[in-house]
Design a protein around this nucleic acid. Structure first.
Lengths: 363, 363
DNA sequence: CCTAATCCTGAAATCGATTTCAGAAATCGA
DNA sequence: TCGATTTCTGAAATCGATTTCAGGATTAGG
């Protein structure tokens, strides 16, 4: 009469195999099955084997929700990156996932699009999911985000930077010092007229900001502080590298060295230089940052800073695994970057014999 | 005496706020609180507001493990990509995550490194995690993987291909037809001596294999079937693109058009061509596949096939969201690719007036 | 004004695995 | 051989939220 056609229940079709089913088949209690799975060494070997056989026969797998409920551990870690479009982040995430997977952890991924509000929301949703650890990128995070983390009592680590505020441990490189070294290298080559292209448009991109500061500091120390027009701000696209170079050379046609805070920008700048008929490095030296795969293959190959992204990812995984287990963990890990001198940089064409570092020529 | 120093308990530090706490504060039963959160419309408005206030006051968030246990839904989706190093996958994952996030889903990520065994293991671990949906890449998957999926009764979709075996729905482009079109375009330009560079080393890379078949088919149809030495197999690195081109031109110095199954390979090939002093496209036309950001910025800009990665990611998300909800879903979705003709391809230098398709010139 | 229908709310069962507690079995020493 | 340990196993409580079931309060209808 009023019987509606049967609706397939939304849940799992096949009635899941439960620990109790295994227990019954093996003629033991559920407790024993649980022990076989979690503490195999405290179960008599023959019994353990028998139970194991039945577990395999029934293709039993534990319900992770029930497990998590009882144990309070999800065996899950979350990562929030600005974007996956940057190879350097993708590489780090991949290494992170691989290492976590080895230890039985699963990785949640989210992206913030360089937006702190979004980062906060994604983190909130991850925490509600009950993650056991969090990986962030960069040093600058809203204070409400920090209090959210604190309140959740979940271990965190932030990556790609050498240190972060708010007591958050970090693993990464010292961005500022890297560009400072790069700048000093160019100074040693004899360059005196510099330009910088930095993707500092996104408010939360503290890496590029630190890199820019490294450039500025080195040049100030050398008595050649950058004028505002010698710094072109961009986002992280290749096309912006092009237009940035054009603008820079419009304002300062005599520039001989351009330092970019990203390989993407540098590659864009090189493309534009070529189009403008400027020889690299004869007329213009260009350097990047990140050492993406393409950098070495450019013509000429790009001088840049190599960032150990995979190592950062692995290190973050190890840190969290230990922190979750309650093992002691380092406060922060500073990894070495590597300056990779290729042939997109050279002494300026009409370089006077490299003066002994023109420290106080003008002041 | 035997008292050890207190060890901080491993669980959550702060005793989590539970639904019962909220209920007590608000002077209602836990059931009501649950209803306020899950079915707000069936609770008397004033009561609902009161409960809501207390929920906010206590910063209560539901325990997702308990929720998942009771409801059988994790609100979680997993994706397994071959690697994140390829921008095209990173882009798809990013779009996937964004769309899922909008619908309250969280994304697990894993990578297979083009290894079917690893893909299977990662999937197993994801299924144990109780995911509600799965996103895979490509058409070729082991049969044990398919039976695992079936047994788990979880909706799946595979991506970047137009169709897959084993009754698995797919969303993506028709790779074979794309390269066929590309090849026909080059034929129309007047090329007759072709070479192909394909990353078909990884057993599971069916995309590139399909692309290679597209090339072969088009050339066979034109009466110009590729000899084995005209096909160079590579993996997906830029450096291999270089060496592949060198090998190809060693065996067939008179080649005028090289079709690559990946932009990365094409870019490597272009770099090598430049190094060998070959003008592109005057002496050699080169085409790629994927339309990565760099393709348009090359010198000359690369002719390639644009893959709608973001759309694929979004489409996969929508598919799963619907499938999980029990809504009707399409069998498969074929998205349009786009041939992007740029200036890395041109008629061969000494091209005779493009013959009307030299169909049966020889045999 | 009273019964019938409607609307809301609370008590309690439930999801599936883990773990404490206690008892049974096995081992050991005398 | 018997009691004292030591090992191992099972019964039952527990994790926290959801949902069914039934009853109390409210409104509508006569």
């Amino acid at each position: 009469m009023d019987k509606k056609p049967v609706i397939v229940p939304k849940g799992r079709q096949q009635p899941r195999v439960k620990i109790e089913d295994v227990a019954r088949k093996a003629n033991v209690s559920p407790a024993t099955v649980s022990r076989v799975l979690n503490h195999p060494d405290i179960v008599r070997p023959e019994l353990r084997d028998r139970v194991m056989r039945h577990i395999n026969d029934l293709a039993y797998t534990r319900d992770s929700a029930a497990r998590a409920l009882k144990s309070g551990r999800m065996r899950t870690v979350g990562v929030i990156v600005p974007t996956l479009a940057l190879g350097i982040f993708a590489e780090g995430v991949e290494a992170l996932q691989n290492r976590l997977s080895e230890s039985g952890y699963t990785l949640f991924i989210a992206n913030s699009q360089y937006d702190q509000r979004r980062e906060f929301q994604e983190l909130q949703s991850l925490i509600e999911r009950g993650i056991d650890g969090i990986v962030l990128v960069g040093a600058s995070h809203g204070r409400e985000l920090r209090s959210l983390i604190e309140q959740a009592g979940v271990p965190v680590i932030t990556t790609y930077v050498a240190k972060a505020g708010g007591g958050i441990p970090a693993i990464g490189i010292d961005n500022e010092s890297a560009t400072r070294e790069m700048t000093e290298y160019l100074l040693r080559l004899g360059h005196v007229r510099f330009g910088a292209i930095a993707n500092v448009v996104a408010a939360s991109n503290d890496r590029s900001r630190a890199r820019l500061e490294g450039i500025q500091r080195a040049l100030s120390d050398a008595g050649l502080p950058l004028k505002p027009t010698q710094i072109v701000k961009a986002d992280y696209s290749l096309a912006q590298g092009r237009s940035a170079l054009r603008q820079l050379l419009t304002d300062h046609p005599d520039t001989t060295a351009v330092i970019c805070t990203t390989d993407t920008l540098a590659i864009g700048a090189m493309a534009e230089a070529r189009k403008m008929g400027l020889a690299v490095p004869a007329t213009l030296s260009i350097t990047g940052f990140d050492d993406v795969e393409l950098a070495a293959q450019m013509d000429p190959p790009l001088t840049t800073v190599s960032v150990p992204a995979a190592e950062i990812g692995r290190g973050a995984a190890d840190y969290l695994i230990n922190a979750i287990a309650g093992s002691p963990v380092p406060r922060s890990v500073v990894l070495p970057y590597r300056l990779v001198m290729r042939s997109s940089s050279a002494p300026p064409r009409s370089s006077v014999r490299p003066a002994r570092r023109g420290r106080s020529r003008d002041h």
